[in-house]
Amino acid sequence: MRFVLRRLGFFLVTLWAAITANFVIPRLMPGNPALAMMSRYRGHINPQALHALEIAFGVKTHQSLLSAYFTYLGNVFRGHLGISLTFFPDPVLHDVLQALPWTLALIGSTTILAFVLGTLIGLVGAWRRGGILDSVLPPIFVITSAFPYFWLAMLSIWLFSLKLGWLPQSGGYDIIDTPAWSWHFIHDAVVHSILPALTILVTSIGGWILTMRNNAISVLTEDYVRMARAKGLSPWRVMWTYAGRNAILPNLTGFAMSLGFVVSGAILVEFVFNYPGVGWMFLQSVENQDYALMQGLFLIIVLAVLTAILAADAATALLDPRTRDVR
């Protein structure tokens, strides 16, 4: 428990760093770029909201930097992220929450699937040293994991939707549909998510396979695995509870570190597929110079990644008694 609490503290620090980056970056830019954005708000929103935006982006406030900073922190923690220009006059928080479920469903589930599948394949590959999973696949995955996500996304649209006509080429659902919890809509959404999901799966699974394989190979040289063999346990038990359970621990740490990489790719995949999630909206806001929305989305991405990492940490604590007893 203490382990998880300590990690929680660390994530608060990271979150604070992200919020502070949001505050500092526009102020560091020569000729405040947010100025142009602000003029587009003027006269359209109430003075109080305008003032909050001025504080957020450092546009002609008479407050000192420090007090502006604290006002900004307070606003962020109360969920006051400003008003979106792209979807005027929606509050940023509203838009963010609208995009989030799409991304969680698509990227969340594919990432978990890729991690689980990759871990299994990596373990079996290491277990059968010299087999197909061990000798042929790793070099292939080395190469596929170097593919740019967005390019693979373009390619799969071209192949599966344009040439073969199997799957829809973009969007999260048909435009004639309206989002609802109906069977028809869910089916539609699933069909739309297959191509982007496959794209993310193909590019991200290689990394998990390779790290798990390497971990498992080094765990297989451990004395406790030899001891398990000496005890005459079934190969199945040796592979799972001795080799697998120990090899997955560093892979969970690896999960934390690679997650940022996966999320970066996923943002671009959403962009290529016009998938109505956080990544697509994020790039929309960049394009429209809608900095308030952009900042809000950046924070939610950070928050999502940190939550996933915390979940990985909790899993580590569950699987590894040593982390539970730390100090």
């Binding site: 994530f11 990271t14 760093a17 992200a18 980056a21 949001n22 970056i25 934390a256 570190m257 997650l259 940022g260 990489f261 999320v263 970066s264 943002i267 994020f282 790039l283 960049v286 952009m294 900042q295 950046f298 991405i301 950070v302 990644v305 940190l306 990492i309």
Partner: peptide
């Protein structure tokens, strides 16, 4: 390490 770097670079 845990901050998603690519979105930060975009920002």
């Amino acid at each position: 390490l845990v901050l998603p770097i690519f979105p930060l670079i975009i920002v």
